[in-house]
């Protein structure tokens, strides 16, 4: 067991336990913080795979921007454990069944899939120069199309969030 394996197991343990913390903690703010820790652990995995650019972008975009927005919404909603409505028994049962079925499917899929070991640090596709070159030459079309997808999502958000024109009744027009 070399230092690479050790780091891998430590990071994996952190990632899995924090991911469990996300769904098990009662307080939504604590959930968000566990999720941030999970992102950090995943970034650690990226660094182990020599993908430093991916690791730092994961932190900037997910931990730094998206989770801040999550926290923002949760703070404004003022959720408390005692105000939160409890789900009925039937809904809980349905949740358990559907979750179990999903688990079964995933398990079946993993069982048949051939394991592909990741090459340790020999690949340097994750370094920013190589990644940039690949993205703008080989995969330029999917890359641009995905950016159009983001643009459309953005425009959609603007359209939904736009103020409705309220007819001015008081002026009597």
């Amino acid at each position: 067991m070399d230092i690479y394996d050790m780091l891998f197991w430590i990071l994996s343990a952190i990632a899995v336990s924090c991911a469990l913390g996300v769904i098990l903690s009662r307080n939504p703010v604590t959930s968000v913080m566990f999720l941030i820790l999970t992102f950090f652990a995943i970034s650690g995995h990226y660094i182990l795979m020599n993908a430093q650019f991916l690791a730092i972008v994961n932190i900037i975009v997910y931990a730094g921007a998206i989770m801040v927005l999550f926290l923002f919404v949760i703070m404004l909603m003022n959720l408390n454990a005692d105000v939160e409505p409890q789900k009925g028994q039937l809904v809980q049962l349905a949740g358990v069944i559907s979750g179990g079925v999903l688990f079964l499917v995933v398990l079946a899929a993993i069982k048949t899939a051939a394991p592909q070991p990741i090459e340790k640090t020999s690949t340097d596709i994750g370094l920013i120069t190589n990644l940039g070159k690949v993205l703008f030459t080989k995969y330029v079309l999917p890359f641009e199309i995905s950016s159009v997808l983001f643009l459309s999502a953005m425009i959609g958000a603007v359209v939904i969030g736009k103020k409705e024109e309220i007819p001015n009744i008081q002026r009597g027009e």
Binding site: I56, V57, I59, I60, A63, G64, A65, V68
Partner: peptide, 10 residues
Amino acid sequence: ILFVFGVVSL
């Protein structure tokens, strides 16, 4: 410089 941005965003 991206590291700096990561820390600033945190």
